[in-house]
Design a protein around this nucleic acid. Sequence first.
RNA 1: GCGCCAGUAGCUCAAUGGAUAGAGCGUUGGUCUACGAAACCAAAGGUUACAGGUUCGAAUCCUGUCUGGCGCACCA
Length: 552
Amino acid sequence: MIRIPQDLTQRLRQAVENAQKAGALPTFEIPPLKVTGTRRPEHGDYATPAAMQLAKLARARPDQIAGILIEYFPQTEYIGSLERAGGFINFRLADSWLQQQVERILEEGPSFARMDDFAGKRAQVECVSANPTGPITVGRVRGGVMGDTLARLLRAMGYDVELEYYFNNAGRQMRLLAESLRARYRERLGLPFEFPEDGYQGDYLYDIADQLIAEHGAELADEEDLTPFKEYAEAKIFEMIRAALRRINIEFDNFFNENWLYENGAVDRVVEGLRERGLVYEKDGAVWFKTTALGMDQDKVLIKSTGEPTYRTPDIAYHINKLERGFDLAVNILGADHIEEYPDVLAGLRALGYDDSRVKVLIHQFVTLKEGGETRRMSTRKGEFVTLDELVDEVGADAVRYFMLARSPESHMVFDLDLARKQSNENPVYYIQNAHVRCVSIARVAEERGVSMEGGDVSLLTDPRELALIRKLIELPEVIDLCVRELAPHKIAFWAHEELARVFHPTYEEIRALHSEVPEELARARLKLYAAARVVLARTLDLMGMSAPERM
RNA sequence: GCGCCAGUAGCUCAAUGGAUAGAGCGUUGGUCUACGAAACCAAAGGUUACAGGUUCGAAUCCUGUCUGGCGCACCA
């Protein structure tokens, strides 16, 4: 499937070269040129300000250059017209080509907008990566939705993608969790208990304690070893997390335990590797990474004076592991609170001779919950959170996915719970899904009335509204490309709502297919159009991990 | 104090340095005896936080100021 802006950009460049060869333009190095969609129909479908960009280099007036570029532009079937508008060049798609795309979408079906740019390449997306100390917070959910959607978009571009969850089940936090569970266990058994200071206060530990009692009775009541509590809590909490994520269609391919990096010596090798390169020194009993030698503000600690590594040492080892597993692209989705850590990781990778350009980091800002006009702080420790399960119960899985996705990562997102509750009837989610429902519905009614789209002649689709809908349908490959190129999965959510569904509904409302005044020939052609729209809507919803309902 | 991110319509948010800054929600007023009205049409609503600067052109880039979020550990 052709991506028009990319193709036009190439042709534009060709036009400049052609004009230069012919002597119509002076010779100069051609800067990157830009072709964009337009905001107004009178500006055509695509436009370029290239002539203005080139005015200085070519030492000529923009409108003259525009004329020259048009003259030397390599024509192609999809371009209906190209015209000069001051310094702009406006492109308009050919009606006949657009009509033909309806057939094409129907032929491609569910594999429409499946591209092979990165066929044979492997990508990994790491997200969520919360330690198993409690239900995941809404911030992690945001990262998970972004990651899973990005994974789907990468697959559409041909990547073989793995979704990975990185976790740490050792250390102080897990010990605290185990102590908290032991306290709840004893509490439920009616025994004296000591709840640890800074322990995990959430109700979920009561549930887990109850399950523990159901399985083991009181046999662990005097257990000194924390291990059984830790293992039990970890297993149950992971179960909770996975089940909750599954409800919003997020299924991880791999869970990676940080501990393995210690067991196989990868963490030690990071320190040794850096030491061999003279980037390590000891001070105050700690081992330091001389990041100032790599252009950073201050040196960082690799191993604390207690002998335990800091988080950044295994993090470097983990990223090396990703690269050694052969991923061509490894995207890490992180909350803003981790913003300081990845420069260290990348510096470590570079210092050890790895190609850090394969590692990309996508940072998202926090999610604030608002309820009753008040913002709520999330804290796993204090047990103050709205769980993903609760969120799904309140607004539905599709709405959770959509809302978490439909904001640019750097925006500080406010999730208004009151609004979300109310919103079940006036939600953008339904606007998109209803478009799909309408396509299914018309096909059903057509069948009931014995009208088939077979043999429909798409060249009858000449109404501007019909053509406008086709224009939107064929944008999907461009949108996917854009999302992947910019690592901006939220853009497909905007497009689905504000472009695709927004153009669909008025068209559907006004362009009737099964009406007594519509000749059957035209009806068949329109049924094809709506069948194609269904294909694109279903594909778009699938890319966002949302359902494509057949009835509302 | 330092760093990162943000500040756009009443609210939640868009907008690749390009043409007249757009949606949704909310508000107001209209549309179904035709494929599901969870829809459609229309109206009102803006000094893009503020002040300078760069540019043919700035919400976008630069400088400064203000406000908010997050960091600034031998926590992860």
